[in-house]
Amino acid sequence: MAVLETGAAPTPKVALRPRGVSRREGWQRRLPLLPALIYIVVVTQIPFLVTLWYSFQSYFFDVPAPAHFIGFSNYTTVFTNAAFRGSLVRSVVMTATSVILAMLLGIAFAVLLDRKFLGRGVVRTLIITPFLVMPAAAALVWAGPMLDPNFGLLNYLLEPFGVHHVAWLSTHALGSVIVVMIWQWTPFMTLIVLAGLQSQPSDTLEAAKVDGAGALATFRELTLPHLRPYIELGILLGSIYLVNAFDAVRLMTNGGPGTATTNLPFYLYQQVNFAFDVGGAAAAGVVTVILTIIVATFALRMFARVFQFEEASG
């Protein structure tokens, strides 16, 4: 047979159907997707289109005049506005710091939880609890009972170390807000990393032992590379949520003192609720969206890598 086939490409005996799926089949496949797709387009994309439209309008809630076209002047304001730029920077700092620190803590906790010890289930329960606490409640409890300069628990616990009635929310506002965000998102990171640790095949770890690797070398050489997609996913999902962080800022410091903790969400909230400037807020929103898209493009590449990982691992 092999000799016979060397001359020409073998011709199939049966006429092949055109490649791909039939049109009918295609629609049968698409149909279940449509409700969710239409829903998400209508609910999330239309407001952004409207935002785009308003960003070229002058429109104030508190002014009876109808919205009217003013060209790029809202954008000019946004770009020349130090408050906007400041809030942008603070958003980046807040998100990056809290996500990275939460991830580092999460890795440490996951390594702890991956070991067998007495009461591991209870310890895990305790560690995931902050993620379950309502962010508004967390913010208020941290702001009051925990961090208050006069009766807060933290000052009491730190008194032996020479800390006396520190007004955390005035002197370390940004740090305090970040601490609360880390506290709430560390459990999330812990769980993702823990899943990664527990999916590591035990025989490669044994192979490493036999190959003469100590605990640290095993972690650095084998565990960390194995955890990489899990860490990336945790950072990505954490960033998605934390870039929108509002509750802690609004309830702990109200953006202050001054603008020390005003991040983008809080800035936009102020624009709409107190300056009543729909047009200005819309322009700021559009700029935010464009910046997010740039960042998200990189993030989506990360997702693509997660996919490759998924396919490779079957």
């Binding site: 025989d203 490669t204 490493a208 036999v210």
Partner: peptide, 27 residues
């Protein structure tokens, strides 16, 4: 195990998935 000077071939090979063949062998 690391101080016993032994080498082991595992049933499912237990190769290090993130390392190349050369890195696996030289680990």
């Amino acid at each position: 195990p690391k101080d016993r000077d032994i080498a082991m071939v595992f049933q499912n090979y237990a190769l290090y998935p993130q390392k190349t063949v050369a890195e696996n062998m030289g680990f």
